Amino acid sequence: MAQQQETKSEPFDEFIVDTEDCEAREQAYRARGTARPITVVGNPVLHKECRDVTEFDDELARLVDDMFASQRAAEGVGLAANQIGVDLKVFVYDCLDDEGVRHVGVVCNPVLDELPAERRMLDDSNEGCLSVPGAYASLARPDYAVVRGQDAEGKPIAVQGTGYFARCLQHETDHLYGYLYIDRLSKRERKEALKQMAEGAPRYETVAND
């Protein structure tokens, strides 16, 4: 925690640029990848902390390609590896911020910065999850986020987001530590979200719970 607080004031030019050539980069990932079924709430892989990525090799590159293909097939804006049954700390995103700017990227071994009090402005917009298909609930999260980790080649990176994109960064990082957004809801709200899920039918292929 202390280390996160020490890094929160680092300069803006440290952050990666994830807004350039978004269409071409996303298409390239997806063209190489194969869409996999989405794992849903209740499956054990979603409810434990994932393993750190230690090998930045061709196997990881193939996983990232498959994650982009899976994310697009399910019409999502972010996807964590355990959502396709892989026990590794990596997520991908293809997400608009509140200004309509598109962000596309990959983060391995993500850690969220601890925000100073003046940056903790909460946004209680609706949130959904591919692993809880058809369900949405209001959830307060900071409207600014910084996540630090590594890219698919193992190089240190930092990503910042505002608004909806900040929510995405927090949501996907949560996944890799074993938390779904419904775990942050009250018991009543969680029950309602699961009811929404049970009453609907997912629009993409899912994996039955083991």
Rank of each mutant, 00 (worst) to 15 (best):
A166S: 11
G200M: 01
Y204C: 07
P11M: 01
V101P: 05
D65R: 07
K195Y: 02
G105T: 08
V104Y: 07
Y93V: 09
P142R: 03
Q150L: 05
V77W: 04
Q170Y: 09
I157V: 14
G76C: 06
K187V: 10
V86K: 07
Y29V: 01
E172P: 11
K187R: 12
R148I: 06
G134S: 07
G100V: 11
N43V: 00
L46G: 08
R51L: 12
A35K: 12
F91H: 10
Q150D: 02
E172V: 07
H171M: 02
L185C: 11
R184N: 11
Y179R: 09
G154C: 05
C95P: 08
N43P: 06
V90Y: 01
Q27Y: 11
L112P: 13
P156R: 06
E172I: 07
C95G: 02
D94H: 14
P156S: 07
R119L: 13
V86Q: 03
A158H: 09
A28W: 08
P110F: 01
C22V: 15
I84Y: 03
E49Y: 00
A31M: 11
D151I: 08
E189T: 05
D18N: 15
K155G: 09
V159C: 04
F15D: 04
R62K: 14
Q71S: 11
P156N: 06
A2Q: 15
D183L: 04
I157R: 06
D113K: 04
L194C: 13
C168Y: 10
P44N: 01
P110C: 00
V90C: 02
A137Q: 11
R120M: 07
K89D: 00
L88W: 00
V86F: 00
V147P: 12
Q27E: 14
